[in-house]
Design a protein around this nucleic acid. Structure first.
Length: 229
DNA sequence: CACCAGGCAAGTA
DNA sequence: TACTTGCATGGT
């Protein structure tokens, strides 16, 4: 792979960042779910929520045999809310999941195979039109559930680039996503692993209050740029 | 006890 | 358009 520059002035590259993270943490292999549907559900449940809580909610659905589009379609929002309680925001998320399932039936006859036949750009727009599915959830579904080469941006992505002076406070989702997608090879496995590594370092090092210490990215900047370092 | 977690939409001015 | 607020459980 060639060295792809993001900011030629400093020589920092996103692949350089990826290598530092990979060397530090090793591969994350972030496909913890078994089915396409499970990943889609997980993408909604994990909105602003710790993953451990999402696993409990998914476990409940599995235990009660509700992890199918037919079962979820038949379930009332209140019944669904009881199942996903541990994931937090359960009333809102129950509605959002029902919206997603309804979309699946209205547009694709409830078939994930039919859904998977749709072109990525069209699919992204359709997902975004579902109430409760924003850019990150849509992209998580596209990348992790449907294996499309779409880079997922999250709060950590923004925070890390902010700390390194590579983005400002106001930059929007699309612009951040473009930084990665315009400067990296279009590779599902890379996008998957890179995003997972960003979340990992965000959790362990790039927190809100305590400033990063011994962050794997300390040497990413040629000279450290911000006073935080 | 306080703070946070792999957001999003609706409400307000 | 640009902020602010509600949503809620469970771990540290």
């Amino acid at each position: 792979m060639s060295e792809l520059l993001v900011q030629s002035q400093t020589g920092r590259t996103l692949l350089g960042m990826y290598r530092l993270l990979l060397d530090h943490f090793g591969t994350q292999s972030w496909w913890p779910w078994e089915t396409t549907l499970e990943i889609m559900i997980g993408a909604v449940l994990t909105q602003n929520t710790n993953w451990a809580n999402v696993e409990k909610a998914i476990h409940n659905l599995k235990e009660h045999g509700l992890l199918s589009v037919e079962a979820l379609n038949a379930l009332s929002p209140d019944e669904l809310a009881k199942e996903i309680r541990p994931a937090g925001y359960f009333n809102v998320k129950a509605k959002r999941l029902k919206n997603l399932i309804r979309f699946l039936f209205e547009r694709y006859e409830g078939s994930l195979t039919e859904l998977a036949g749709e072109e990525t750009g069209n699919l992204r727009e359709q997902l975004l039109a579902v109430n409760g599915i924003g850019p990150e959830t849509a992209d998580s579904i596209l990348l992790y559930s449907l294996g499309r080469p779409v880079f997922v941006v999250d709060a950590y992505t923004h925070r890390i680039l902010l700390r390194h002076g590579m983005a400002d406070e106001q930059v929007d989702y699309h612009a951040l996503q473009g930084m990665f997608m315009d400067n990296l090879p279009e590779d599902v496995r890379l996008f998957n692993e890179f995003h997972a590594l960003i979340v990992r370092t965000g959790k362990e090092y790039c927190k809100k209050k305590p400033l990063c210490s011994d962050c794997p990215l300390v040497h990413w900047d040629q000279p450290p740029i911000l006073p935080e370092y």
